[in-house]
């Protein structure tokens, strides 16, 4: 046995040992870690369902590491396959999480849609509530006359004397009227003009009609379909008060708005 051969032999041995069993963590520990990791994902039904292939590969790599661990000098390989097995388990778990998240997202999307619908309905309801509040207001302005239905009176003060132009102070009332008609799309109106008995009968008739038309035009300008509006002039007919006093005459100069019922049926014209 020469010293030279001995030296070479020991160098080779050292190489072998260092080459395949370097200072990394114990291969047995790596194997056990991979095994328990695999155990965990294999028992998770969600992981199995979402990523069966990765679970299988984790198992295969683990089995390989297992097999290699019984051979001398294969610690590196054991560590390698244990590492691969762990990675497959991790990937499988991530895929499972992703899958569960996506399933949850689908449910939440449905919930969002349901809530959006509910919100729209609630908003509509509040508009309707506001609408019925407005309706009450409108109706409180109007008086109910059994044979004519609901009647709202725009007084003389809203017009300049002898003129058909509506004053700016009438805007609020007209806007309320428009809003009311928008919220009650089936209702129609008849706008009737009246004067007192002073002056020429024919002129009064024309003035009463012109004033009623002014109100109707304004409603149309504000978006109410002209088909929903009838216009009539009654001149000095149908006074509400005696024309003897100036107060009575002032009350007789008026525009009345007759509302139909909710089905759009108007009372008979005078």
């Amino acid at each position: 046995m020469s010293a030279k051969t001995q030296a070479i032999t020991s160098v080779m041995l050292a190489l072998l040992l260092s080459g395949c069993a370097s200072s990394q963590p114990n291969s047995g520990e790596a194997l056990e870690a991979a095994r328990s990791r695999f155990q965990a994902v294999r028992e998770d039904s969600n992981v199995l369902r979402s990523a069966p292939k990765d679970v299988i590969r984790a198992g295969e790599s683990l089995a390989r590491a297992d097999r290699l661990s019984s051979y001398w000098g294969s610690a590196d390989d054991v560590r390698h396959y244990a590492y691969l097995s762990q990675r497959y388990s991790d990937i499988a778990e991530q895929h499972s999480d992703l899958n569960l998240n996506q399933e949850r997202a689908v449910k939440l999307e449905l919930e969002v849609q349901r809530l959006q619908l509910a919100l729209r309905e609630a908003k509509l309801l509040s508009v309707q509530e506001h609408g019925s509040w407005l309706e009450e207001q409108m109706l409180s302005l109007a008086t109910s006359e059994s044979e004519r239905g609901l009647v709202m009176t725009l007084g003389d003060v809203l017009f300049d004397a002898g003129q058909a132009d509506l004053q700016a102070s009438a805007n609020r009332t007209v806007l309320k009227l428009v809003h009311f008609l928008q919220l009650n799309p089936r209702r129609v109106v008849r706008i009737e003009g009246y004067t007192d008995n002073r002056g020429d009968k024919q002129v009064n008739l024309e003035l009463s009609r012109a004033r009623a038309q002014t109100v109707a035009d304004m409603l149309v300008d504000l978006g109410i379909d002209a088909k929903r509006i009838e216009v009539q002039g009654h001149g000095e007919n149908f006074p509400v008060k005696e024309n003897a006093s100036s107060k009575g005459r002032a009350q007789n100069r008026r525009v009345e708005i007759v509302f139909s019922d909710e089905q759009g049926r108007l009372g008979a014209a005078r």
Partner: peptide, 22 residues
């Protein structure tokens, strides 16, 4: 496998972000 795990993690994080947005 490291790269595939990185990819899977990013996708899962994104789905998580989507969930919290919802």
């Amino acid at each position: 496998l490291d790269a595939r795990l990185a990819e899977a993690r990013v996708l899962t994080e994104k789905s998580q972000a989507q969930l919290s947005e919802l």
